[in-house]
Design a protein around this nucleic acid. Structure first.
Length: 418
RNA sequence: CGGGGUGUGGUGUAACGGCUAACAUGCUUCACUUGGGAUGAAGUGACUCCGGGUUCGAAUCCCGGCACCCCGACCA
């Protein structure tokens, strides 16, 4: 993409009402726009990042047998009354509104009820199970206080998968697969080193649930990390019994601030009981479906990546989520034409080779372009100038390390294609 | 929801109750420049969040509202 075709621009100053680093950088670099507190629009670059994250998550969900759907944001009162979660006394962050008819509807903050209700139409026999159904959907939560930029909003994208299994054993097998899939996701997204499988409260159907917590000062949770085992315990469940279960000593745990980027939860038969989601087994006996839920927030992950990986000059995207792999910078020479022709040519060669390139073809001085490139954070920066032409090699700079390489065109393309 | 704070050109800031609301940046035009947000010139752009009040006079003081930020609580 030619940068001259991008309607967003970078800015030197962050708006004064943003304190969170993720929001400051994402707004300055033109990735997001703040509509109101806790509500952000994704601009062309930001949407590309979000979609990259979604793609990584989708691949892993499909790999463990997920089937993607898209449920509705509008939710009917009657469905939620079956679990008593329509009540404002029980759930205090509903966004509720009314149809013209006067009927009450809510904007979904999660979808256990909706999907369990839906699945009754399709699950009748043991032959229909297990099923793993997921979606990427905008959730609405009327938080009393939005904060931390895009990391805790009132409207946000979430991947939620729900598992429907015949029994606890079958559920447990999938639960472990989902846990591993989440580990894979955070490794691919560049957060693996800082993300810990964290033991948290399990509710009434299992002893523990598992959160995926990424260590960052921008987080809201306090966790106790065991580096050796690469696990952690949420402060809310830290006690002697838990330590014994995990086989760790309190002295080996280090307290850290972290943000919950994903969580997996065994639901047991809580929802299947409420909706009478049952099936008939091989012997003709009626059984209740055993469920689990598995959430992950792509927008929150995007904010977490910015919080944890950016530096003084701006954002540093991991390759898996960068909107473009490379940022091609044209430095106009004295005649203003030679370098442009060369950069145009390289841009075409790279895009023809399938490399995602943002081409800064704007008529600006080099300093401004370099500053923009650092701020926007593509993994690789290529410069084409009279200097590089004279040297007969392209200059490739790694955003994360600052390392600079001189490469012939074919080597450059081969490297970026990889 | 409790507590604290802030609302001034697009953005960041300034202005004692008193001159035509200032500076920087952005944007437009011209010149110059082209490896780290250069330089010069000329322009553009604000009912000082909204509504009331006090005063000869309000960006400034008072009351109400709205918005935003921070701390805490909450986060099924």
């Amino acid at each position: 993409m030619r940068q001259s075709h991008l309607f967003t621009k970078t800015r030197k100053d962050a708006p004064k009402d943003e304190v969170a680093k993720n929001a400051q950088l994402l707004i300055r670099a033109g990735y997001v726009y703040k509509e109101m507190a806790g509500v952000y629009a994704f601009l062309p670059l930001g949407l590309r990042v979000l979609n990259k994250i979604v793609g990584v998550v989708r691949d892993e969900m499909n790999a463990i047998g997920g089937e993607e759907v898209s449920l509705t944001a509008l939710q009917s009162k009657t469905v939620w009354e079956k679990t008593n979660r329509w009540s404002d006394a029980v759930v205090d962050n509903w966004f509720k509104t009314k149809l013209k008819s006067g009927a009450e509807v809510g904007l979904g903050f999660t979808h256990e009820e909706a999907l369990t209700n839906l699945m009754r139409d399709y699950v009748h026999s043991y032959r229909d199970l297990p099923r793993y159904v997921y979606q990427f959907q905008t959730k609405f939560r009327n938080e009393e206080r939005a904060k931390s930029g895009i990391m805790r909003g009132r409207e946000f994208l979430m991947k939620d998968l729900y598992s429907f299994s015949k029994n606890a054993e079958e559920h447990a097998v999938f639960y472990e697969k989902a846990k591993q899939a989440y580990v894979n996701i955070f490794n691919t997204l560049g957060l693996g080193d800082k993300t810990y499988v964290t033991f948290a409260s399990g509710g009434s159907f299992s002893k523990y649930s598992h959160e995926f917590q990424t260590v960052t000062e921008a987080g809201e949770d306090m966790i106790y990390v065991h580096e050796g085992k690469k696990i952690a315990v949420n402060k809310e469940v830290l006690n002697d019994e838990v330590l014994k279960d995990l086989g760790v000593a309190r002295a080996d745990l280090v307290e850290k601030k972290a943000v919950e980027v994903g969580n997996i939860f065994s639901l047991g038969t809580k929802f299947s009981d409420a909706f009478e989601l049952t099936y008939v087994d091989e012997k003709g006996a009626k059984q209740t479906v055993v469920m689990g839920s598995y959430g992950i927030g792509p927008g929150r992950i995007m904010g977490t990546i910015v919080e944890t990986l950016s530096d003084a000059n701006g954002i540093v995207w991991p390759e898996a989520v960068a909107p473009f792999k490379a940022h091609l910078i044209l430095v106009s020479g004295k005649d203003g034409d030679t370098a442009k022709k060369e950069a145009d040519k390289l841009y075409k060669s790279l895009t023809d080779a399938g490399v995602e390139v943002l081409y800064d073809d704007r008529d600006l001085r080099p300093g401004e372009k370099f500053a923009d490139a650092d701020l926007m954070g593509m993994p690789y920066r290529i410069v084409v100038s009279d200097k590089t032409i004279a040297a007969g090699a392209h200059e490739l700079k790694h955003r994360a390390t600052g390392k600079i390489e001189q490469l012939a065109e074919k080597d450059l393309i081969a490297k970026l294609k990889a």
